[in-house]
């Protein structure tokens, strides 16, 4: 990806959501996908925090990329990410204290999520502000939707509800709300998406 290459908004969003989905395709930052997906709400909130940090760091890095010395770029990126993580951590603690308690540790751990620093290195450090913004949007939304997707799957099957609202009067498959079920959910969904992709490609090849 060289500088000057043109990206459209739609292309960037599709890239993050589908083609390079951080969870199902790149398989980066799996920890929250396993631990924080037993209900949809946690997945959404954590996804929101990641979206914010990704977009803000992408924009910051692409603005200041000429000032950051090549040799110290990794430490500089880490400091920038840590700053935005602290900002979202303090913001959530102040304005959403009830929801924050459950995801507190994971919000702080966004600093070490590989997806964020890899986007800075691969994309934001080589592109201007606007594409970087949309790249961050795409990646963040892709992350958020992946978390929410697993969350919907597990919450509905595990406790028969969505976003805490009871849809079924019984728990269809209690197993899915147990913590270790996160591993199984990701494994199965990953295989499912791989299968769908193969079928899709085969179908397109035939046409």
């Amino acid at each position: 990806m060289s500088e000057g290459q043109h990206y459209t908004v739609l292309e960037r969003l599709a890239n993050g959501l589908v083609r390079e989905n951080p969870i199902f395709k790149l398989a980066l930052s799996m920890c929250p996908a396993v631990a924080m997906t037993n209900n949809v709400r946690n997945g959404f909130l954590l996804g929101l925090a990641v979206l914010f940090v990704q977009v803000a760091s992408n924009v910051t890095v692409s603005i200041f990329r000429r000032f950051i010395h090549e040799r110290i770029r990794i430490p500089a990126y880490i400091i920038i990410i840590a700053t935005w993580v602290s900002v979202s951590d303090m913001g959530l603690a102040a304005y959403a204290p009830g929801f924050y308690k459950e995801i507190a540790l994971y919000v702080k751990l966004i600093v070490v999520f590989a997806i964020i620093i890899s986007r800075l290195e691969v994309f934001a450090s080589r592109n201007t502000v606007w594409p970087s913004f949309w790249d961050g949007m795409g990646m963040g939304l892709g992350f958020m939707f992946a978390l929410m997707f697993v969350g919907v799957f597990r919450e509905f099957l595990g406790s028969g509800s969505l976003w805490g609202i009871e849809l079924l009067p019984f728990k269809p498959f209690f197993f899915w709300s147990l913590p270790p079920a996160g591993f199984f959910a990701i494994g199965l969904l990953m295989a499912l998406f791989l299968w769908l992709e193969r079928r899709f490609n085969a179908w397109r090849g035939r046409k």
């Binding site: 110290i72 400091i79 700053t83 303090m90 913001g91 603690a93 102040a94």
Partner: peptide
């Protein structure tokens, strides 16, 4: 270079902290 980056982010965090802490 690194020092300036750290200083700016620490300053920013300080400002945001003083604002959000009372609200929290």
């Amino acid at each position: 270079n690194l020092f300036v980056i750290s200083l700016v982010s620490a300053g920013l965090l300080g400002v945001i902290f003083t604002h959000t802490e009372a609200t929290r």
